[in-house]
Nucleic acid binder design. Structure first.
Lengths: 105, 105
DNA sequence: TTGACATATCGGAATATACCGATATAATAG
DNA sequence: CTATTATATCGGTATATTCCGATATGTCAA
């Protein structure tokens, strides 16, 4: 199948994209996504510890990412596990890691 | 159980990545990037018209994207041309277009 | 020099976001 | 039931962002 040349997104798509990017644009949220991409799924408490965040803040970050479709949550007993819901997140994070990994600043 | 950390970005890299993503996370700035990726280089005035923005706002958006390394500017006479300075922007935008292009809206 | 055009910067108001502490809800064990 | 654990939500404050109008800077032509 031929590779389609990038056509410009319309205003609605650009607005939606901007919202999602803004949601992703936070150090701890990026870290959470990385953890979930590599670790499959994790409960809120463990994500909070890994990101060195108070539990309420971790919960709020996860809620934002769930709201824009990046994550979904599944309750199991008392724990709530979060996992990646948006397949495109992997390639997006790969781009980000390629740009910001192994770099001197 | 600890999560594997070999491929995770450190805090500094995550912070830098978040800053750049935040800069990109605006509808008109995304549009500017798309225009510059497809049209090579454009003066401020033309970008302002294409994005339906007042000239001062266009200038400010461009300044932000230049500050984080996405763009660079070259003055030619009275006009100032902006162009893509960050090679990774193309693949990043490709990811975004893949996710937000051709969807019902 | 003056006048025009192109771009950049400034000041402020409205809105959004991040962070924190306290508390509320939910599930389970005893 | 109460107590414990895990998560979610709320109130308030500090900070950041966006947008706007006005103005400053820079370049060139005459």
């Amino acid at each position: 199948m031929a590779v389609k040349t990038s056509s410009l997104l319309n205003v609605a798509a650009l607005t939606a994209a901007a919202e999602c990017l803004r949601t992703l644009a936070h150090p701890q949220r990026l870290r959470m996504v990385q953890l979930l991409l590599s670790g499959r799924r994790l409960p809120v408490g463990e994500l909070a510890v890994e990101c060195d965040l108070p539990q309420p803040q971790a919960s709020e970050h996860l809620r934002l990412m769930q709201r824009c479709g990046f994550l979904r949550s599944v309750r199991e007993g008392r724990a709530v596990y979060y996992e990646i819901a948006e397949p495109h997140l992997a390639s997006l994070m790969a781009c980000i890691e390629k740009r910001f990994g192994k770099r001197k600043g």
